[in-house]
C-alpha cells in the first residue's frame, strides 16, 4: 500500500484513482475544488486561513455552500455529469460538519486534494466515503463558460 491514507477509505481500490500531484500544505481540498492551489481555505475563527470575505466564518454545510456560490455555483440535485456544467461536491461527517470537497472533471471523474497529502482523480464520489470524510451531502454546479 503506497500511501498510508488509503486505509482511511474502505471503498477505494486500485484502479479507482490516480495520483495527480505531490503532497503539499499550500492548499487544501476546499481550495482545490475552487481551482485555488495557493491557499488553504477554512473558516477558522482566528482569521488565519482564507475564507470568502463576504461570508461568516462558520463551520457549517450552509456556509460551505455559500462559499462556492460566491464562485457562481448553484445547488443541484446530484453528482451526475451534465453537459455544459461543472460540479463540486461537499462532504460532511456523521454530525453534519463539513470535511471535504471534490470537483468534477470533464470526463466525469472527480478530483480531490487530501488534506496535507496528494491530490487524486477518483472514479466517483463514493470511493472517498469514510468515517473521517463522511459522504457527499451537497452538490453544486455552474456553467462551464465560467471556468476561470
Amino acid at each position: 500500500m503506497p500511501f498510508a491514507w488509503e486505509k482511511e477509505f474502505p471503498s477505494l481500490i486500485p484502479g479507482d484513482w490516480t495520483k495527480t500531484s505531490d503532497a503539499t500544505r499550500r492548499f487544501n481540498c476546499i481550495a482545490w475544488a475552487a481551482y485555488d492551489d495557493g491557499r488553504w481555505w477554512w473558516p477558522d475563527p482566528f482569521l488565519q486561513y482564507y475564507w470568502p470575505p463576504s461570508l461568516p466564518r462558520e463551520n457549517t454545510i450552509e456556509c460551505f455552500v455559500r462559499a462556492y456560490e460566491t464562485l457562481g455555483y448553484e445547488l443541484c440535485d446530484d453528482d451526475s455529469l451534465e453537459s455544459g456544467f461543472e460540479k463540486v461536491a461537499i462532504y460532511a461527517n456523521s454530525i453534519g460538519l463539513p470535511t471535504h470537497a471534490a470537483r468534477q472533471l470533464p470526463d466525469g471523474r472527480w478530483t480531490s486534494k487530501l488534506g496535507n497529502c496528494e491530490d487524486i482523480a477518483h472514479r466517483n464520489l463514493s470511493v472517498l466515503n469514510s468515517q473521517l470524510y463522511g459522504s457527499a451531502v451537497r452538490f453544486l454546479k455552474r456553467p462551464l463558460h465560467r471556468f476561470p
Binding site: W5, N28, W42, Y49, G115, L132
Partner: peptide, 9 residues
C-alpha cells in the same frame, strides 16, 4: 493527526 484532514478545527 490524520494528514488527510482539511478541517483546521
Amino acid at each position: 493527526r490524520n494528514p488527510i484532514v482539511s478541517s483546521v478545527e
